[in-house]
């Protein structure tokens, strides 16, 4: 469950008593709410910057590419609860070292140590998803999300992507990169929203769309 507390967003902790990344905790009676730090999660930053389309809901199946150590994943895990699942794909075994203990605590996270460029490697573990989330910081990140969406996304399913301009081309103007990536993604998705994450994340844009 997601809720606003003053200026901050917070999710109701699925595993009370456990912090994931040193986030602030708000207690409300017996409930425990984990504050979503916008400086360490791009989705958190997008929310603070006024994201209007936030499709993640209880019970959703989510394919998350570039799960890293699970900061954002942990909040999504709070929202989808136990009748949803997050397939968390991460290629770095160093990040996996932190993600695995998190998945042991939260049964709705399925960690997958594999290259998001090669969906055939992990297809056997995954069902069709309601949403594909991509934060991989690779030059071909738009192609990566499309390749995965083609196989794993339900018709009319959602997509969210954090575009990191600097990992696409350091020399180009970020604004130009955003519009180029937007064009690429528009082949497959209707882009509903584009948010610049400045100043919370430098040279990052966040897109939300729906499968055509």
């Amino acid at each position: 469950m997601l809720q606003k507390f003053g200026r901050d967003y917070a999710t109701k902790s699925l595993v009370p008593g456990k912090r994931v990344y040193g986030e602030r905790i708000i207690r409300k009676g017996k409930e425990e709410w984990r504050v979503w730090d916008p400086t360490s999660s791009k989705l958190g930053a997008a929310l603070v910057k006024g994201l209007k389309n936030f499709p993640i809901k209880k019970g959703m199946k989510i394919l998350y590419l570039g799960a890293s150590t699970g900061t954002t994943v942990s909040h999504i895990s709070d929202i989808v609860e136990h009748d949803g699942i997050i397939y968390a794909v991460e290629f770095s075994s160093r990040s996996m070292r932190d993600l695995i203990p998190l998945a042991k605590q939260r049964k709705n996270i399925a960690p997958i140590l594999d290259d998001a460029r090669l969906p055939e490697n992990y297809a056997a573990l995954i069902e069709k998803a309601d949403l594909v989330y991509c934060d991989v910081a690779q030059p071909d990140q738009s192609e990566i999300i499309m390749r995965n969406a083609k196989v794993f996304l339900k018709p009319q399913g959602w997509m969210m992507i954090a575009i990191k301009a600097r990992s696409i081309n350091v020399a180009k103007n970020p604004k130009q990169i955003y519009s180029e990536e937007r064009q690429k993604l528009s082949k497959m998705f209707n882009i509903l929203e584009q948010i610049d994450l400045q100043p919370l994340e430098k040279d990052h844009a966040f897109f939300v769309g729906k499968m055509k």
Binding site: D83, S93, A103, K104, K107, A110, I112, L125
Partner: peptide
């Protein structure tokens, strides 16, 4: 559904742990 999803994630978890050791 919950039991099934838990089963899937436990399988993914095992697989990733093995791969981590191999890597």
């Amino acid at each position: 559904k919950e039991k099934f999803l838990e089963f899937v994630s436990s399988i993914a978890l095992q697989r990733s742990s093995e791969k981590m050791i191999e890597s």
